[in-house]
Computed example of a mutant assay.
Amino acid sequence: MKRPNLLVINPNSSPVMTGDIEATVQVLSDRLHFDFVVTSTPGAPDVLESFRDYTLGGASVLQRLAKQPPDHFDGLLLACFGDPALYALKEQVLLPVTGIAEASFSLALLLGYRFGILAASAKAKPMMESLVLSYGLQARLAGVAALEVPIGDFAGRPGSQEDLMVEKCESLRQAGAEVIILGCAGMTGIGARLQQRTGLTVIDPVVAGCTALWQMIAGGFCPSRTGLYA
């Protein structure tokens, strides 16, 4: 297999969060031997904290790729935990495509029976519950714990809320979670530390997304064109 080339799109316009995502992807690139480009989305909100933000960010990604198709890439990762416009991307882009939430949920099902999600803001809690429902996985969800911290506070310093995150992981453990998913790309880089401190399996969504995309490319799998994504 030739060395895959991955396009990782952060659908917000934050250069700091994009840098955090890129740092994680670089570590995986060295381990899994793929090339990559990580890019933000000019014109999108600097953080995506509402359904309106998701719509604006997702639309910006779709418009950009319509003008500049990712033909020289082997796969595309949408690096926002809301998976904004993911299904539209699977219709539009003739490549393996996944989002970091979709990939994280899929991985969590392999690693334990019930999973919990660490969300950033209070509003993100019902948004994450709604997202899990849309994927039909509500029976496997132990709960969502909100840190009640703005998403932007994680940018450039994902470990700044580590003690609070450990506390929330413990509350999710008490609710029955065996696996913890970090519910924001801005939390990337802290997963291994949380796993060490809590003893729980912790999924970094950027790691899950890149790994899933790499596996799709290696296996020769693309979204089906005969039904939902036709």
Rank of each mutant, 00 (worst) to 15 (best):
G219K: 03
S160P: 03
P150A: 14
E178N: 11
L194Y: 08
L77V: 06
D74N: 13
G43M: 00
A142G: 09
A175R: 13
E178A: 11
L62C: 15
Q138E: 14
G99N: 05
S130V: 02
E170N: 06
R173K: 14
T24Q: 13
L131W: 07
G43Y: 04
A44R: 01
G186C: 11
D153H: 10
G186S: 15
R31H: 08
C169D: 10
L213W: 07
G57Y: 05
T41G: 03
D35P: 01
A23W: 02
Q196W: 06
F36C: 07
P42N: 05
A124W: 02
S224I: 03
Q92N: 07
V27H: 08
G199R: 11
V206T: 07
V166G: 04
L76I: 14
G43W: 01
R197F: 11
P223S: 00
E148H: 08
R140V: 00
V132E: 05
V16K: 05
L95R: 13
L194N: 10
R140M: 08
P126I: 09
D204S: 12
K67D: 15
L172T: 12
C210E: 06
T24P: 01
F221G: 01
F34N: 05
G43D: 01
R197M: 13
G183S: 05
P4H: 08
V97G: 01
Y54H: 00
A103K: 05
G219R: 10
E148P: 09
E129F: 06
A59Q: 14
I117E: 06
A177G: 09
A142T: 10
Q63R: 15
E148D: 15
G99Y: 04
D35H: 07
I100N: 02
A139L: 01
Y135F: 15
Q195V: 09
W214K: 04
L77K: 07
P15G: 07
V206W: 03
P126A: 14
L141G: 10
D35Q: 14
K125E: 15
D71T: 14
M17A: 06
